[in-house]
Design a protein around this nucleic acid. Structure first.
Length: 425
RNA sequence: GGUCCCUUCGUCUAUCGGUUAGGACACCAGAUUUUCAAUCUGGGAAGAGGGGUUCGACUCCCCUAGGGACUACCA
């Protein structure tokens, strides 16, 4: 894969790209800082072009260029420099750029692996700058020379480069380099159909991490965007690699759909290792100030398997596990306070006493015990369940009652109950 | 403006001339229900428009419309 931001990108931006790719699990062999592979090679290539009359020196000033551009655009044609056929003579050392001398007739065909053959009229292709007035090579020259020198056989990149492919093909031919295979894949658009900026794409990758998406979920979702393998929706990296063929890449740009991303992410959260989820979720709790000791994962880890089925992102997983990591005494929410009338209070006190004598604090035992208690009280679960949950969780969502008790553990559960039901009495 | 690309349910896609146009997400209804969810069952939903080619077109060709990219001494 080609990174085309090789010159303009700041070191920070480049680092962000690589951080993003690293998070995604898509490491690159390329060094994290781009430099022109070999400036001499670029200049030599241009000199060769100059010698063979396939490039020329252009002395147009910026003002002249702007004027010419305006005229060319008004006339609906590509820009042409008057220096194209005017030799300035070796003595002229005014600042100038080196432009490619493109053919005026015929057509250039880019045999794209995704789009098929794409034809361009040569007269529409302007004489692009090869070397700037300070001698620095431009992107279009640099990619051709670098890719050739590096033995690149396949150029797979975004659709936005399809036009460049024609210009680059011309340079390849003028340099007598073997043409690589081109494949231009569609861009990904935002949910509204507007484009998702390439420049900020890598930064966005980091944002997906912050939004609580798992890298393997992103990989699966992204792979499915603009490519399909029958009805397969969920697949492993290995399967994707085995199945992939550029020919199956869809031609049209796809829109990012958060709902589906969430669904895929939920799938991978369900399958993720609990310890890993606990550690990731703990980081979120800490960053929110809800947790101070990252290593105190016992209750968090107990809670995760109980709620992860309902979590679409790690952020949601944090919300769903908040009940487990709360620090006593819990602040009860208004709804719970409202539920705690005298009748309910005394009922929950009786339950607390029951639970205090329990020997078996396992889920199944607790489930039976809560059931038996309801029966003994002659009421349904609805009569005290919500209040019990509120007291145990402080109003945060929590799993079913027995699970919540089990996840909190005997000591914490009883302490929370006593805090709410016996304090001040 | 010019050049080029694209167009199947709301979204991602399957179909590679003959299908009741399939799946997934989302949505709607129902079931379940001690919170939030999850889960189960059922349902609605598409070939942009117009011309051709063909016995037959979502599939091939042309036009129109719409969307997008490019149009720098940026990449």
């Amino acid at each position: 894969m080609e990174d085309t931001d090789r010159e303009r990108s700041t070191p920070d931006a480049v680092k962000a790209i690589f951080d993003g790719l690293g998070w995604l699990g898509l490491e690159s062999d390329a060094p994290p800082v781009f430099q022109f592979a070999n400036a001499e090679r670029h200049r030599a290539a241009v000199q060769g072009l100059l010698d063979r009359g396939r490039a020329y020196r252009c002395f147009m000033t910026v003002e002249e260029l702007d004027a010419e551009r305006a005229i060319a655009r008004a006339e609906g044609r590509a820009i042409r420099s008057p220096w194209r056929d005017r030799d300035a003579g070796p003595g002229d050392n005014r600042p100038h750029v080196i432009r490619f001398k493109g053919p005026l007739e015929g057509e250039t065909v880019v045999d794209d692996l995704v789009k098929g053959p794409v034809r361009f009229h040569n007269k529409e292709l302007d004489d692009l700058v090869l070397l700037r007035s300070d001698g620095a090579p431009t992107y279009n020259l640099a990619v051709v020379v670098d890719d050739h020198d590096m033995g690149v056989t396949h150029v797979i990149r975004g659709d936005d480069h399809l036009n460049n492919a024609a210009r680059q093909t011309l340079i390849y031919q003028a340099l007598e380099f073997a043409l690589p295979a081109f494949a231009h894949i569609p861009l990904i658009h935002g949910p509204d159909g507007a484009k998702l900026s390439k420049r900020h794409g890598a930064q966005a990758v980091g944002e997906f991490a912050d939004m609580g998406y798992l890298p393997e979920a992103m990989r699966n979702y992204l792979a499915r965007l603009g490519w399909g393998h029958g009805d397969d929706e969920i697949f492993s990296d290995e399967q994707a690699i085995a199945w992939f063929d550029v020919k199956d890449v869809v031609r049209a740009p796809a829109r990012l759909d958060w709902a589906k991303l969430n669904h895929i992410n939920n799938h991978y959260i369900r399958r993720a290792d609990n310890e890993r989820l606990a550690s990731l979720t703990a980081q979120i709790h800490v960053s929110r100030g809800a947790m101070h000791n990252v290593h105190d994962l016992v209750r968090l880890q107990a809670a995760i398997p109980l709620v992860k089925e309902g979590a679409k992102t790690l952020l949601e997983l944090a919300d769903l596990t908040l009940f487990a990591i709360k620090v006593r005494p819990l602040q009860l929410d208004a709804k719970t306070e409202g539920l705690l009338n005298e009748e309910t209070r005394s009922r929950l006190r009786r339950l607390t006493e029951n639970l205090s004598e329990t020997k078996d604090w396992s889920f199944s035992a607790l489930e039976q015990q809560v059931k038996d208690f309801a029966a003994a009280e002659g009421v349904g679960l609805g009569k005290f369940g919500p209040a019990l949950r509120g007291v145990l969780s402080g109003g945060s969502p929590a799993p079913d009652l027995a699970s919540t008790l089990a996840a909190l553990g005997e000591t914490e559960s009883l302490a929370r109950l006593k805090d709410a039901l016996f304090a001040g009495h």
